[in-house]
Nucleic acid binder design. Sequence first.
DNA 1: TTGTAAGCGTTATCAT
DNA 2: ATGATAACGCTTACAA
Lengths: 334, 334
Amino acid sequence: MGATIKDVARLADVSIATVSRVLNKTAPVNQDKRLRVEAAISQLGYRPNPAARSLLRQETGGFGVLIPSLGGEFFAGFLKGLDEEAQASGFFCLIGAAHRQEGELEHAMRQMQGRVDGMVIMSPGQSAEKTLALVPNDMPTVFLNTDVSDPTIPYLNFDNHGGAYRMVRHMVEMGHEHIAMITGPTIAHDAVERLRGYRDALRDSGLSLNPDLEFHGDFTEESGYQAGKAILESPLRPTAVFSANDFSAFGAMSAFQEEGLRIPEDIALGGFDDINISRFTTPPLSTVRVPTFELGRRTMKTLIGMVRNIPEDVMTPDVLPTELIIRRSTDPDA
Amino acid sequence: MGATIKDVARLADVSIATVSRVLNKTAPVNQDKRLRVEAAISQLGYRPNPAARSLLRQETGGFGVLIPSLGGEFFAGFLKGLDEEAQASGFFCLIGAAHRQEGELEHAMRQMQGRVDGMVIMSPGQSAEKTLALVPNDMPTVFLNTDVSDPTIPYLNFDNHGGAYRMVRHMVEMGHEHIAMITGPTIAHDAVERLRGYRDALRDSGLSLNPDLEFHGDFTEESGYQAGKAILESPLRPTAVFSANDFSAFGAMSAFQEEGLRIPEDIALGGFDDINISRFTTPPLSTVRVPTFELGRRTMKTLIGMVRNIPEDVMTPDVLPTELIIRRSTDPDA
DNA sequence: TTGTAAGCGTTATCAT
DNA sequence: ATGATAACGCTTACAA
């Protein structure tokens, strides 16, 4: 058990109120008393008890973060941005992952109930409206990468649709007319947006949409591998494939190379996310870079702006731009 | 502001003490009163205030987790195991990442001070003894993947040395006599252990240790790529390369293939960690599988055993086995 | 079996 | 400028 404010007061020979005042700079304190208090604090290694403080202030100094998974650089970058911004303002983050299973999201929220002052929710598989029903009314909440139709719900994301759109347009410009897509999970909002971008790009290019060129995946390497195999067996063999994320693109790349195909000469391949590895595959993978760190920072800034009532810090709705990265897997001259 | 215990008591027409008793089953309560209380609780959606409870009980129900980074499946699996076990016992995890910079570890600990009942510290770059000086004396703490010489310090890990050893022995069995290693950061404990395994395997195989065959890396793809380039330019060209982790192995693979080398015919390559992607590279990567999830579970079980005083749950010191996974990058027939 | 009241460590409102 | 003291929401003696 650490020292309490009473111990400090006794040692410094002042009242606990005075200790509290030097601690929070909430009122002027005499020079000598302040010094005595500060000395006592460092001598005892005193730290205010967060529980006691929370109880009185009715705030915890923390935010809850709910994400579908901890794996992948995607989340790592996002969490880093989130945490960095939070730390800068003295907040901490309580991270809850893997709310894929039914009820898990709700359970995680219960767990966080009363331990946080606000929430960040990334729940690509469920609409914000539906999720919002689970969070307490007065709890400031920011949504990410979620299906949200109500514009008053605080929401940030990056431009999934635009990124996919530009990738496919790039493939068209490289001369491809039969472009397949390996999709992400149909319930995931980002996957749906990327699919929409793919379709819009084809349509705007005067190419016909062919359902047989949409191969189902779930963002994993394994699903990309299976889809790659399926693509090679399909009657209308595409000359280019856009994979909904880099992981599944690797799976497809593996499948193609196993059959001796050259990329991009025999079949071009593009991904999405630009994770570290993508630069180092053979050939390097064309992809769409997403600003995960920046998204995290802005999200946290917004959330803090909400609880601190700083309207100019609240940046929502907000959609950050994504960047097309062209490498050899789609362009032999890259 | 949610309902308090008083609101429940008023609605159920009992005292707050009675409410507390049905809440904690700490003493028998009349059937009808219990029902009234339970009804009131669910009607009001009442949840006990964690701060108030912590204040009184002098415990938080949470554990702090300090890890060097959030990126990679390695940590994802570990955190998942940790969290799953914690949830099962009603605890939550406060995760702090990236304490690479000087003082960051200490800051994170300060932050967690008073918010957690115990800590999990993975600090590969610093000895446990040194780190332990920063944590409060009475705070139960488990170390992972750290340099710990004092056997009384609770410590878990998996067998880095043995995994590296078996990988290199495997390469020797495949007929290689000049085996290089791409190391991890020299300050990281796991990297050092893997290097030790490499050296011991060479020694036990009757091969000479050659400092010129140890290439410096830092676990990143980029460093693996650079080391790969350096290897190709080295006077004594090795026929096999053991990379300290899969990421850096990918970088090396990229460097080798850029020069048109065939793996494993021209040069064999092995990694460490067996992350998802390793199965899908061309060729698939031989590696060492590490039980990240299991390590997380056991760590948390141990920590809970410590705070709850359940000696049979405390499994420390403990070193989990690793598994050699042979794929085509070292064995053409795999 | 139940209620009253003390107390956990803080902050904030009074007086002084 | 400073010190008592009430209050935050809860658990737990202690009485009844």
